[in-house]
């Protein structure tokens, strides 16, 4: 509650400012999207929700984006948990490993995408090494990891970028509570695998849930990763929105706003889940 030395008026003022600063851009932004979709603001003809929902291209794009975000986040989560469990200690080598793995954390998406393109494409560095070793004769024999239907290149970039963040969360959770509780379980007679299965993992997963959702929506909305690395068919959702927006056809224009609105709905849903899972201490 508000402590006595903070004036109630000042407190209320700050709170209203918070609501305004955070809420207004969101409301205005979504408002314009709605306007664009129904053709109030913008040149777009009103488009029917039905037509967009019946458009197979929209669904394929949504599925691809969900696949990228889902697979990328799951792999990054698995890596992060392994690091917390295997390299979460205080020894020199473990601390070194954790510092090294944190390296990609601040690297902007664009930079990461460029690096992965140069490394993983069919004529990238790995393919060249394979050619030198006579494992392949032409670039086409190297597996398609970039501009590929399974978006492996994008997923690899997501893992590279997001594993450090999730590892950071996992390690700190583990050192805060996890280890003590695991030790307690062991003292009470649980086998190592029992303790891992029933105490450590559930605890970590529960604590990491909000961060995992944050990573998931961040990847889902990213424009630059699929722009550089993802397949041309289907297009990732942000790319589909851009393509429809820039079409010379006014109907497509309205569709773009409507698809953007659907993507927004997905994000708001994620925010609700995030809020429900977030530990609200105090």
């Amino acid at each position: 509650m508000i402590p006595p030395h903070v004036s109630a008026r000042q407190h209320l003022l700050t709170l209203s400012a918070a609501a305004l600063l955070l809420g207004v851009p969101i409301v205005v932004g979504i408002g314009y999207l709605v306007g664009g979709a129904i053709g109030v603001s913008g040149d777009a003809d009103g488009v029917s929700l039905g037509r967009v929902l019946r458009d197979g291209a929209v669904w394929r794009s949504a599925l691809l984006s969900l696949w990228i975000a889902g697979a990328g986040t799951s792999l990054a989560l698995t890596g992060a948990l392994s690091i917390a469990l295997l390299l979460g200690g205080a020894s020199k080598i473990e601390r070194f490993a954790r510092t090294v793995v944190a390296l990609p954390l601040p690297v902007p998406n664009v930079a990461a995408a460029v690096a992965v393109l140069l490394l993983l494409s069919q004529s990238g560095w790995l393919s060249r090494v394979a050619a030198q070793l006579h494992l392949i004769a032409t670039p086409g024999e190297f597996p398609a990891l970039v501009l590929d239907p399974w978006a492996i290149g994008v997923i690899a970039t997501v893992v590279w970028k997001e594993l450090p963040f999730l590892a950071l969360v996992a390690v700190s959770l583990q050192s805060l509570r996890g280890r003590a509780l695991t030790d307690a379980a062991r003292t009470l007679g649980a086998s190592p695998s029992q303790a891992l299965r029933t105490i450590t993992l559930p605890l970590l997963l529960r604590g990491m849930a909000p961060s995992v959702i944050a990573v998931f929506v961040f990847v889902l909305g990213s424009l630059e990763l699929p722009l550089v690395l993802a397949p041309s068919s289907p297009l990732a959702l942000p790319l589909l929105i851009q393509e429809r927006r820039q079409s010379l056809d006014a109907t497509s224009h309205g569709e773009a706003y409507l698809i953007a609105l659907l993507a927004t709905g997905l994000a708001v849903f994620a925010a609700l889940v995030h809020e429900a899972l977030r530990r609200d201490e105090a």
Partner: peptide, 29 residues
């Protein structure tokens, strides 16, 4: 608690909105 959670929800929404969608809305404003 209610206010706290609402602010957190708003804040996370600002983070979670796909930049392509948020940008399209903000562009006009």
């Amino acid at each position: 608690r209610g206010v706290r959670r609402s602010v957190a929800l708003l804040a996370f929404t600002a983070v979670a909105l796909p930049p392509v969608a948020l940008g399209a809305g903000l562009q006009l404003s």
